[in-house]
């Protein structure tokens, strides 16, 4: 027994560390995927659940997946650090917190300046969409990013709000439907 004192001690520390009381569960608000953009303002900061088919999982990092025909972006988090590619085509229920990234002229000007200064800017998570992945756009290429900036400027002007919003969900849990 004494010979295995060290592993036993470590295992005990591990078990006691994981025995912390779990925080009370918050009930997730079910939201229909197609309605999420219109209801987004009211849902900020609340735990929501979405049902949909996994249309795509990021191949390289597994850090994001896209849900349903809307290609709604779901981001990995501390709770679920990566998504498995095998989820593609599966119907899932995902819960998480809605996140809004607002892109305005200041954001675009900073981005443009980074590129003009010769910085190698990787794809911007805020604006990265399934469309770009599906089209095989190299979002780290300067020309692609300058085109994106131009397009977002046009969208900001057309929207009249002075910004455009990109919504995504920071995942808390995923349940695969059988």
């Amino acid at each position: 027994m004494k010979k295995f004192l060290l592993p036993i001690l470590l295992f005990s520390v591990l078990l006691s560390a994981c025995n912390n009381p779990k925080p009370a569960k918050t009930e997730a608000i079910p939201v229909i995927l197609s309605e999420i953009k219109t209801k987004a303002t009211d849902l900020m900061g609340k735990l929501i659940s979405l049902d949909g088919m996994v249309a795509h999982v990021c191949r390289e990092s597994g850090k994001r997946l896209f849900l349903g025909e809307e290609s709604f972006k779901v981001l990995a988090s501390n709770k679920i650090p990566t998504f498995k590619v095998e989820l593609e085509g599966s119907d899932i229920t995902v819960t998480g917190y809605l996140k809004e990234d607002r892109i305005d002229e200041t954001y675009l000007a900073n981005w443009e300046k980074e590129l003009q200064d010769g910085a190698k800017v990787q794809l911007k998570e805020e604006t990265h969409t399934y469309d770009a992945e599906a089209k095989g756009l190299d979002e780290s290429a300067i020309t692609t990013q300058l085109d994106q900036i131009k397009g977002y400027r046009e969208q900001i002007v057309a929207g009249g709000k002075g910004f455009i919003s990109f919504y995504s969900l920071e995942v808390e849990s995923i349940t695969e439907k059988k």
Partner: peptide, 17 residues
């Protein structure tokens, strides 16, 4: 790689140790 990305609480504690 899956383990490296810290898949859960048990692993988090074990990797801390």
């Amino acid at each position: 790689n899956y383990l490296h990305y810290n898949p859960g609480a048990l692993w988090k504690w074990f990797s801390d140790i």
